[in-house]
Nucleic acid binder design. Structure first.
Length: 916
RNA sequence: GGGGGCUUAGCUCAGCUGGUUCAGAGCAUCUGCCUUACAAGCAGAGGGUCACUGGUUCGAACCCAGUAGCCCCCA
């Protein structure tokens, strides 16, 4: 069959993927073999495959395929995440486009639309992974919101609540006015921005003026958020600030609302910042809130859920917060109350999902008590620190520790509908219980096992907290409680990560009643491959869940990939349009080429700078392998006894030599795998195939044109191709499967995907290949002298180890185009010469030798060697070196000295001969 | 403001506990080749005061201190 010069991935990839699937090679069920398990970081159902997924899933596939070939029971569990806030936002938008408002439909109707959406689009990303070659056990595909997994989430919530690790509390939280939900601290992204710092005058009351007066008739306060002025309840200065000492305890008037507030003192205030006076707005700033608590101040929340000014503010009601800021600045400037402003750099929190500017606000939410959690499960930290769970690269250990050391309580309730609904039930007074069903909740109420509300009832309906709601009112209306009616389930759902932290267990039905075979067999999993951006969101929390709910770690290794960026180090993003479409890339370069392109330049933890030339390199490599196969497939054969002894021996030697190269590479590759240095492992294979296999080995055994190859040599060549294909298979599964089948006429003993992976070998038998340097040297001489490779040379070798060269004579003759080799005969009158180690080679060459240039070259080398010898002697003559250095180091220096002397002697001899 | 990391060839990166012939790889570059597997290729070559300054040491890309620049995380 005539094979095309170019490999066409498009013709083979789908074929092999179906073949693997149809034969169930990706499937895994527990058996007596050692398991090897990876759970996929479940992509969001809203997502389409991006370059980050490509990298991440390629790495997982390499690991899982290698394990499978090593005879382990490899199980890679795929699935998707319901991505509460992202999906809800998407569905809301989709409905809005149809003219449907979320507020106008019921929760059930909304969820119906959401499920429709999920069923329609949720599987796209998984289908795209198949194009990449991902060998997931698709029969095990899970979804974080399917019934079993949702039940697990609810059960875990109830358990943690009973254990006192989950509580309902009123605290300052992050509010996303676009998503209309609270967020955990991790979901807030701080961005640096240019802001205006406005100087606002708070007029003194008459009483204050008596003791202190100035030109302004008031205190100047610097603020970046004038729209919260209506929530001001005090002015705070540093007690050590001489400027304001006499004012502490006096009063000023808040602009706009004309509220009279006190001037208080607190160490927290930075004397240097602004004017040294802080307007205290406890409802809208974490630090102000703390000051408010300390000084027992009122809390006036001036914003509503949409980020507009609330009636409570008493002015600018209904106005958007940013519009209000502009307006208030304009108005106060006109009144002469704002006298100046300056630009400053500060950081502003944004929602990770909606990018809206986050508002801090006080709200009643559900929290996980992290301090207590870590106290009960100290392994969460220790397991990572003592490498029971290994991070690759290790630098992330520090990041992890730092986060745990400063951890705050985890806000897990979200004001959304898409997600697991919080199993808390309230009566009309706001008393509540946590229970899986309404019936159980009723029973708990009957048993008086309820909690009194943190705040009054209105909080259930309207989530604002004003000063009244902070006064906790313990209900004592027992008569009412003993006859509960109309329980309402909490309207909120749980943070997405509160479900995905269970993923490594829940995908194996770890929380379900019934047999735990899968969990016991596959868990703890082996490797987790993910991005460092979710180390806190997900990695840390899976570790927490692992120890809390199973008493074991969730995985043994975490491989942190880098972030895929463009050539200019910019993140890939839709708005920049700098991200290639992965499916187009695969169509153009083939999945194998893309996989290689992604892997080549992505050491663990380093960002990868995506450049199409990497993918081209991958495609070119495929083509190289394809052509190596084409060469082998095209050989005509002849029986071994029909070729000369020399050819037989030469081919045998080539095989031994390649075996040495191969086994050395295998040993290196297995080490690199152990260290999770996948790009280095791939590079080692790349060089083994391109340089050692193609450029050297195949050239050694390739017969001259038109001649056949002897049968044993062909068999060896095929074996060697099989070996390198095997090594490469985890990285480039398609082409290796294709060629492996071709190699055995479509009927190999077993498919490549199940082929045994090579193992390390202690003693690699060495083949003396010093002589091969001659080939490079002669090519070099030809190149530098502009002599054609077609011109055959004679060669004279001066050496004490003739045999080192003799065994390679056939190869040297073929690859360097040498017609005759002689040993240790006298140097011809006119010749080109060179040193191979301490051996000399001469090429008789009568015409056109530039003797002056030759001499100059030798003289230069001699000069270098003299300098080199001097430095070696300096070491050896240094008593302290001889006294302190290790014996083997000294021995090496002595050897260097001897070699240098020998070379110098030969060069000197050549120089004098030429001079004669 | 706190923590972590980085700075080695034009680019992207290796370089383990300091010690082989003046520091390695891939890509890119240059030179010569369409040599019957591959021009998506072959053969060869050039290219680096290892950020800077000082210190420790017989010996420093590697250890220590400081300086400069860059990146990430956290608040």
């Amino acid at each position: 069959m005539e094979l095309d010069k170019h490999y066409s991935p498009q013709l083979v990839e789908d074929k092999w993927y179906s073949y693997w699937m149809d034969n169930g090679f990706f499937d895994s069920t527990p058996d007596e073999r050692e398991p090897y398990t990876i759970v996929i970081p479940p992509p969001n159902v809203t997502g389409v495959l991006h370059m980050g997924h490509m990298l991440n899933n390629t790495i997982q596939d390499v690991l899982i395929r290698k394990a499978r070939m090593e005879g382990k029971n490899a199980c890679w569990v795929p699935g998707t995440d319901h991505a509460s806030i992202a999906t809800e936002a998407k569905v809301v938008k989709m409905l809005a486009e149809k003219g449907i408002k979320k507020l106008d439909i019921t929760r059930e109707e909304f969820l119906g639309h959401a499920w429709d959406w999920k069923n329609k689009y949720g599987g796209i990303i998984l289908d795209q992974l198949k194009k990449l070659g991902a060998s997931c056990d698709w029969k095990r595909t899970r979804f974080t919101m399917e019934e079993d997994l949702s039940n697990a989430v609810i059960d875990v919530f109830i358990k943690l609540y009973k254990d006192g690790l989950i509580y309902r509390g009123t605290k300052m939280v992050n509010w996303d006015p676009a998503g209309k939900t609270t967020l955990s601290d991790e979901e807030v992204i701080f961005k640096e921005s240019q802001s205006n710092l406005y100087y606002v005058t708070y007029k003194f009351t008459d009483h204050t003026k008596e003791t202190f007066n100035n030109e302004l008739g008031g205190l100047q306060v610097a603020t970046t958020r004038p729209e919260t002025i209506m929530g001001d309840v005090a002015i705070c200065v540093n007690p050590n600030d001489e400027r304001y000492k006499s004012l502490i305890g006096k009063t000023v008037i808040v602009p706009v609302v004309n509220r009279v507030v006190k001037i208080i003192a607190d160490d927290y205030i930075d004397i240097e910042f602004g004017t040294g006076c802080l307007k205290v707005t406890p409802a809208h700033d974490e630090n102000d809130y703390k000051i408010g608590e300390k000084h027992n101040l009122e809390i006036i929340d001036v914003l509503d859920d949409d980020g507009r000014i609330h009636e409570r503010a008493g002015a600018y009601v209904g106005m958007d917060r940013f519009a209000c800021r502009k307006q208030i600045v304009k108005d106060l400037e006109e009144q002469g109350i704002i006298t100046k402003s300056e630009q400053i750099k500060n950081t502003v929190g944004h929602s990770e999902r909606t990018d809206a500017v986050i508002e801090k606000k006080i709200s009643t939410q559900w929290f996980v008590n992290m301090q207590e959690y870590l106290k009960r499960f100290p392994q969460v930290l220790s397991a990572v620190m003592n490498d029971e769970i290994k991070f690759h690269p290790v630098k992330f250990k520090n990041v992890y520790k730092h986060w745990l050391d400063n951890i705050k309580d985890w806000n897990i309730s979200r004001q959304l509908w898409w997600g697991q609904r919080i199993p808390a039930w309230y009566d009309e007074k706001g008393n509540y219980v946590v229970a899986k069903t309404e019936a159980e909740a009723q029973k708990l109420f009957r048993d008086n096992a309820f909690k009194a509300p943190m705040s009054d009832n209105s909080n259930l309906i309207e989530r604002h907290v004003n000063r009244d709601t902070l006064n906790v009112q313990h209900s004592t209306d027992e008569e009412h409680i003993s006859n509960p009616v109309n329980l309402i389930q909490d309207a909120d759902v749980l943070d997405t990560w509160f479900s995905s932290w269970l993923w490594p267990m829940s995908v194996f039905d770890g929380f379900k009643e019934g047999d735990k075979n899968d969990l016991n067999y596959y868990y703890p999993t082996n490797d987790l491959v993910t991005g460092p951006d979710i180390i806190f969101f997900w990695v840390a929390r899976m570790i927490m869940a692992g120890y809390a709910f199973n008493g074991q770690k969730p995985f043994s290794n975490v491989y942190f990939t880098g972030i895929v960026r463009d050539k200019l180090r910019r993140k890939m993003s839709k708005s920049l349009g700098n991200s290639p479409e992965p499916m187009d890339l695969i169509a153009k370069f083939g999945a194998d080429g893309v996989r290689m392109g992604m892997l080549l330049s992505s050491p663990a933890g380093n960002d990868i700078l995506y450049d199409e030339s990497n993918v081209e390199q991958g495609r070119n490599f495929c083509n190289k392998i394809w052509n190596a196969y084409r060469l082998i497939a095209g050989f005509q054969t002849v029986a071994d006894d029909k070729v000369s002894e020399a050819v037989l021996a030469s081919n045998k030697l080539a095989d031994d030599w390649f075996e040495m190269k191969y086994q050395t590479a295998v040993n290196d590759i297995l080490e690199q795998f152990k260290d999770y240095k996948l790009s280095e492992a791939l590079m080692t294979i790349y060089k083994l195939i391109w340089d050692d296999f193609c450029s050297w080995y195949l050239e050694m055994v390739k017969p001259v044109y038109g001649q056949p190859i002897n049968e044993s040599a062909l068999t060896q060549a095929k074996n060697n191709l099989e070996k390198v294909l095997t090594l490469l298979h985890p990285f480039m599964p398609f082409i290796t499967e294709e060629l492996y089948h071709e190699l055995y006429d479509g009927k190999p003993m077993q498919p490549m995907i199940l082929h045994a992976y090579p193992t390390a070998k202690g003693n690699v038998s060495q083949v003396d290949d010093k002589a091969l340097q001659i080939i490079s040297e002669i090519r070099n001489i030809r190149n530098s002298k502009g002599l054609s490779p077609k011109m055959a040379f004679e060669l004279i070798i001066k050496t004490e180890q003739e045999n080192s060269y003799k065994i390679w004579e056939t190869t040297i003759a073929k690859l360097a185009n040498i017609s005759e080799i002689n040993y240790n005969i006298s140097k011809p009158e006119k010749c080109l010469s060179s040193l191979i180690g301490t051996d000399e080679i001469f090429i008789p060459f009568a015409e056109a030798i530039d003797e002056v240039a030759e001499m100059k070259k030798m003289q230069e080398e001699l000069t270098y060697l003299e300098g080199f010898l001097k430095s070696v002697d300096a070491k050896l003559n240094n008593d302290r070196f001889v006294a302190n250095a290790k014996p083997d180091v000294i021995e090496k220096e002595k050897q260097k000295r001897a070699d240098a002397l020998e070379k110098m002697e030969k060069l000197k001899k050549s120089l004098t001969q030429n001079n004669n």
